[in-house]
Design a protein around this nucleic acid. Structure first.
Length: 572
RNA sequence: GCGCUCAUAGCUCAGUGGAUAGAGCACCAGUCUUCGGAACUGAUGGUCGGGGGUUCGAAUCCCCCUGGGCGCACCA
């Protein structure tokens, strides 16, 4: 399938070169030529503003430049006409016959529609979710889950070979607290008098369930055990729950990477050593430079703790140096984080995408400094920073807290709505934008909810073919030249999908596909009303051509829904 | 206080320096004697938070201001 913006850009570039060779345009460096569909239909299907950009370097009137470019444009099968307009726009109009012929091409490509080779031979990794298994996934985390998985799908569509990775830590204080919390619940389940601690305790109902199961399995054999066996049991059970939840929304990670393995392999200390060799490490009771307070104020937090090991990240532009190893000899989270990314580089990915919550905004920069300090190319990593989700119910914000157990879990949310609704709502927002998840709206199964609107387009196509089959009608050997203006309008939009995949993948903006899907559905439904295939008044040949069109439309909706990790239902 | 980020229709939000700023929902008015029906059509609705600047051209880039969110640990 052709990427029309690129195709047009090539034509324009060739025209500029030809005009320069003919002496009609002066010599200048040809800029990147941007071609895009204009906002209004009377401005053509694709437009180039390059003549306006060239006015200064060429020292000419933009309209004249555009006229000269248009004169030198080589012919192309997809172009019907070219028009030069007022300030200097070059407007292209697609050839209708060529467009109609795309119906067959769409059907041929099927589920691989607009599969690109942008990342051909390249390996990409997307790290997302990465929640420690201290509880079920809650809604706050799940936005990153949908964005990450959709990002992975788009990269696959762009031609990358993609690995999905989940990074977690089962060795820290959180997991210790989890084990201890389960221990208390276990004793409680055995009928022993227990005191529920005020702090460092996970209050979720799920631990009571685990405790009951544990009693059923082992009886009172663990009465005198410490937190450790409880932690191991809880971790295993928790991961089962988390993976099952993710599977419900079509997410499956290829690799679960345990931070602890970086300690077991020695990678953490190797990383420190390498940073040291490169001159980025020093030991001191205080940072060498403290740009936050000019080194004047004697921070209490920096005193009386002895010597720590510091990362001289200020040498790379950081606001302050960071502690790598505390004075008690244990590393901070920063060091294993850097070691983890070093590990990723060693695995040879060409591209690494990290999906993180906005609360990690500072931390990822420190990791980037670490990567740079190790002599690696930080531009291979791209971070998608996700703003937090606010749950709104009855017009009011619902606060979430993992510890107190009164949060809305992703499972709850799926139960109340559907996997597809959750996927779409959490995807259909720019990552930069705060997301108000209106629970009341999401629960509603009405046309206020775009998910149904989009999926219904696919359902309607499927319905047509159920009915056609019942009537013994076929679209074999259809003459697509009979398709009209409505269908052409839809096909024009379809032709934008390839560019959308490319841009989304390159700019790491998976939300674009969600808006595209809605636009496509908005275009489709009126056509479905107008362009009838099964109505008695429609001549057989025309009916056949229209069926062919709907077959292509169904392919497109299935492709788009699949890219979003959603189902393409046959009926609703 | 410092850093990052956001502010666009009543609400929720799109908008990759280009032409007259868009969509969904809500609201209002209609359509289908319901074919395939979570459907369709139309209307209303905007000083793009405010003020400067760069540019032939700014919602978009730069600076200042106002107001939200998040971060500023030898926690993760």
């Amino acid at each position: 399938m052709k990427l029309l913006p690129k195709e047009h850009a090539t034509l324009v570039e060739q025209a500029i070169r030809a005009a320069q060779a003919a002496g009609e345009l002066p010599a200048f460096d040809i800029p990147a030529i941007e071609i895009r569909p204009p906002k209004r239909a009377d401005q053509g299907d694709y437009a180039a503003a390059v003549a306006l950009q060239l006015a200064k370097p060429a020292g000419m009137n933009p309209f004249d430049i555009a006229t000269i470019i248009a004169k030198h444009l080589p012919p192309a099968d997809f172009v019907a006409s070219v028009e030069v307009v007022k300030p200097g726009f070059i407007n292209f109009r697609l050839n209708d016959d060529w467009l109609r012929a795309q119906v067959e091409q769409i059907i041929v490509e099927g589920e691989a529609l607009f599969q690109l080779d942008l990342g051909a031979g390249k390996r990409a990794q997307v790290e997302f979710v990465s929640a420690n298994p201290t509880g079920p996934l809650h809604v706050g985390r799940s936005r990153g889950a949908m964005v990450g998985d959709t990002m992975a799908r788009l990269l696959e569509a762009a031609g990358y070979s993609v690995e999905r990775e989940y990074y977690f830590n089962n060795a820290g204080k959180q997991m210790h607290d989890l084990g201890n919390s389960l221990r208390i619940r276990y004793l409680e389940a055995l009928g022993q008098p227990v005191q529920i601690p005020e702090t460092d305790f996970y209050q979720g109902e799920y631990l009571k369930d685990f405790a009951r199961d544990l009693v059923a399995e082992k009886g009172d054999a663990l009465v005198n055990a410490d937190w450790q066996p409880f932690k191991e049991y809880a971790e295993k059970r928790m991961f089962d729950v988390i993976r099952a939840t993710l599977r419900r929304v079509n997410i499956e990670h290829d690799i679960f990477f345990n931070e602890n393995s970086l300690y077991e392999s020695g990678a953490v200390w190797d990383t420190l050593e390498e940073l040291q060799e490169r001159g980025y490490v020093y030991r001191a009771a205080k940072p060498e430079t403290d740009t936050t307070n000019g080194g004047e104020a004697d921070d209490e937090e920096n005193t009386g703790k002895g010597e720590a090991t510091w990362f001289r990240s200020t040498a790379l532009g950081d606001a302050k140096d960071r502690v790598l190893v505390k004075s008690d000899g244990s590393p901070t989270y920063t060091l294993p984080d850097i070691a983890y990314h070093l590990n990723k580089y060693k695995r040879g990915f060409d591209l690494m995408v990290n999906v993180l919550g906005a609360d990690h905004g500072t931390q990822y920069k420190v990791v980037a400094y670490g990567v740079k300090a190790l002599g690696l190319d930080p531009s291979k990593i791209h971070v998608i920073l996700i703003q937090l989700v606010r749950m709104i119910r009855d017009g009011k914000e619902v606060r979430m807290s993992t510890r107190r157990g009164d949060y809305d879990t992703l499972d709850d949310l799926i139960d109340q709505t559907s996997p597809d609704v959750v996927r779409y709502i959490l995807l259909a927002r720019s990552p930069d934008s705060h997301l108000n998840f209106d629970l009341d709206l999401a629960v509603k199964q009405s046309n206020e909810n775009p998910v149904y609107y989009i999926q219904n387009a696919h359902v309607r196509c499927a319905g047509i073919f159920r009915e056609a089959e019942a009537r013994g009608l076929s679209d074999d050997g259809a003459d697509v030249s009979l398709l009209g203006a409505d269908e052409l309008r839809f096909l024009r939009k379809v032709m934008e999908l390839g560019d959308l995949i490319e841009v989304s993948a390159q700019t790491f903006e998976p939300h674009r596909i969600a808006f595209y899907a809605l636009e496509l559905a908005t275009l489709f439904h009126p056509i479905y009303d107008n362009v009838r295939a099964l109505h008695g008044d429609v001549p057989p040949e025309l009916a056949k051509a229209r069926l062919r069109f709907y077959r292509a439309a169904q392919v497109v909706f299935r492709r788009v829904l699949t890219l979003m990790g959603m189902s393409a239902p046959e009926r609703m």
